[in-house]
């Protein structure tokens, strides 16, 4: 523990010293960044930008993740349809969504909806693939047992498939949520007039390195808080599992 604190302090000290040497207008300094964040919080500026970015991320995530979660459950019973769609969804996943930002802006304007569309397109595929994997990983013996007991498809989904797939869904959420926040901010970099990404880009545009770094720090903080929240939710929901990490790559 002390090792870590010393290491963190050393990093900050090196940065501070470097700033004294190279000039704060070049690389800013930890003290300046903390000051800047404080000023922004006090004036309420930060909250507005944070709220905007989080709203984009949350809306986009919901619009993408809900179909991404439901579609594999439907396709479970339609093996042929799933096989037909598979390569298209693969390509869709592989497409570089960040490169499509200008397109989203053409379609949905420079306001909130172009960012929501980007985030939705990123989260859909992540959740879809992870949930599909989870649905495939359901123990067939459990399914047979439930069928013999007379469970309907809806009961089967609710009592067997969904609980078994939950760790996989969480895995996708863990990946998709930070990417959603980051993705929203990146879209804001390219064209926006609000949000943390806009704050980074406008500060950098005015050669205010401290402002840009403070906005990145705020973004990192939000991502870290999201990760903690997801981990807590997972611990709550998956208390029945012996081990928290989904399967590691299977050894030969």
């Amino acid at each position: 523990m002390w090792d870590r604190i010393i290491f963190a302090a050393a990093l900050a000290a090196v940065w501070q010293a470097g700033s004294a040497w190279a000039g704060p207008e070049q690389i800013s300094s930890p003290v300046l960044v903390v000051q800047q964040i404080y000023v922004w919080i006090a004036s309420g500026v930060l909250l507005g930008h944070v709220g905007y970015t989080v709203l984009e991320a949350a809306l986009g995530f919901l619009i993408g993740a809900v179909p991404g979660l439901l579609l594999p459950l439907v396709l479970r019973r339609h093996v042929f349809l799933a096989a037909v769609l598979d390569p298209f969804i693969m390509i869709g996943y592989g497409l570089p969504k960040i490169a499509f930002i200008p397109l989203f802006i053409v379609w949905f304007g420079i306001g909130i909806w172009s960012k929501v569309a980007l985030v939705a397109s990123v989260s859909f595929f992540l959740v879809f693939f992870s949930t599909s994997e989870g649905v495939r990983a359901v123990d067939p013996r459990l399914l047979r047992m439930a069928k013999v007991a007379g469970a309907s498809e809806a009961q089967l989904l609710r009592t067997i498939v969904l609980p078994s797939a939950t760790p996989f869904v969480f895995q996708a959420v863990q990946i998709a949520l930070p990417l959603s926040i980051g993705g929203a901010a990146i879209a804001e970099l390219i064209s926006s007039n609000r949000g943390l990404g806009y704050l980074i880009q406008s500060s950098a545009g005015n050669f205010e390195i401290t402002g840009a770094l403070a906005a990145v720090a705020a973004l990192t903080l939000i991502v870290a808080l999201t990760n903690i929240a997801v981990a807590a939710a997972e611990a709550q929901l998956l208390a029945w599992r012996p081990q928290m990490t989904p399967s590691t790559p299977k050894a030969a």
Partner: peptide
């Protein structure tokens, strides 16, 4: 783990400055 959480692409304006 913390640095993995930083959206690195958001650093691009800063990197362009540097």
């Amino acid at each position: 783990k913390t640095t993995v959480g930083i959206p690195k692409l958001a650093l691009s304006p800063i990197l362009i400055m540097w």
